[in-house]
Nucleic acid binder design. Structure first.
Lengths: 208, 208
DNA sequence: GGCTATTTTAAACGCCTGTTTGAATTTACA
DNA sequence: TGTAAATTCAAACAGGCGTTTAAAATAGCC
């Protein structure tokens, strides 16, 4: 295991748990059992390390997401919104093969990135991976063409908020669900719960 | 204007903008034009200052929210979910009278509190203001009695996520909407957009 | 006016942060 | 095996953090 990967592995877990600002390089390097200076040697700075952590996941997720959404767009029959959102399930759950708890970690990182560091991660994702977003809006437009561009903009951001926020606090919520309802829920279970919710939200009647 | 209030006024804006961890006491006190030590003198610690900032809003919002939701529950006719969520509008917008941009600041603070500081604010709100949550779940249950307690739990947290996340990045989103659609949107406009979304999400058909 | 209690102030405390340095060590290749 | 490049390492850097201290200033009250 290379030093670079030891750092990435330790960093992603700590970042997901405590946020980017809330995690120090000393925590990361001692967890990874490497020297403190290794981060700056291999990545240049903490900011570049954050980008590297996100890129590793996006490079794994991006192509699968594109092909899943692309397949949906090229079909003859018009998809419904549940289909569109369900297209996310397999690519997201595949991250669990890539890495233990990969799905959960990635979604938590996404949530952290949206609120930490004054939205620089939003800039990073939208500029580095614009085709993912374009594919998604295309699919939604095909499923629900009556929605104007502006209404779609807002509803997609509401959806992003629902997913990202839920997942960034999913551990706490899963614990509450376990103690209140004696129900063991995993990340796949949460995703299955959230899809009808966001699909109905995006499909809500338009009030003008 | 008392020193205490000067600190609270400066702190809430900075906390909303940059998070609790991301804002230093030195930023707060220099913005408020008071001495650095004043925070620890008047509030004891940074953590207590955060609680004080949140309490000032909750004390303003709580009673209005309770009466709005209480009125809904005591009505003869069964409310629908749009009514339930609409009950939040007036109490929330009233915060704009209480304080300039009060609605926006409060919702941003709420969002920060859920992700910053490992959820201690969730603990603070649920233990200090449980009746608000109870009123809300009662109203939703009356509007949609088929929903089981567990399904309601998840859908309410999805809703919380949608609102809180949207509002915590509302400034950035409003800017994008302005440049992409030439549409000036304010916080009330965003709230009106989000209500049909969350109402439809909570009302989504149950998949068992 | 004088005394007490409250508040404000400048300075320092100890600790933690990301980053840099230069020497020691390991690795890779001829 | 010898040499040059790549990597690791301990140590220190400058700066920011929340908090504390004790003296100075202000306020309230008899």
């Amino acid at each position: 295991m290379s030093t670079k990967n030891k750092i990435l592995d330790a960093a992603e877990v700590l970042f997901a748990d405590k946020g980017f600002n809330g995690t120090s390089l000393r925590e990361i390097t001692s967890q990874a059992e490497v020297n403190l200076a290794a981060v700056n040697y291999h990545f240049g700075s903490k900011k570049e390390l954050i980008k590297a952590v996100m890129s590793r996941y996006m490079n794994e997720l991006g192509p699968r997401l594109e092909s899943a959404l692309g397949a949906l767009c090229s079909e003859e029959i018009k998809p419904n919104l549940v289909d569109v959102f369900s297209a996310f399930i397999d690519p997201l759950l595949h991250l669990n093969n890539f890495k233990e708890n990969g799905t959960s970690i990635f979604l938590q990182l996404l949530g952290r990135g949206y609120t930490d560091s004054q939205g620089f991660l939003r800039w990073f994702l939208t500029t580095q991976y614009p085709e993912v977003i374009a594919n998604f809006t295309d699919a939604v437009h095909k499923a629900y063409p009556e929605l104007s561009a502006e209404e779609m903009f807002w509803r997609l951001h509401f959806t992003m908020g629902t997913i990202v926020f839920t997942m960034s606090s999913s551990e706490a919520l899963i614990d509450i669900a376990l103690s209140d309802f004696d129900r063991k829920v995993d990340i796949a279970g949460v995703i299955k719960q959230v899809i009808p919710y966001v699909a109905a939200g995006v499909a809500a009647p338009i009030i003008r």
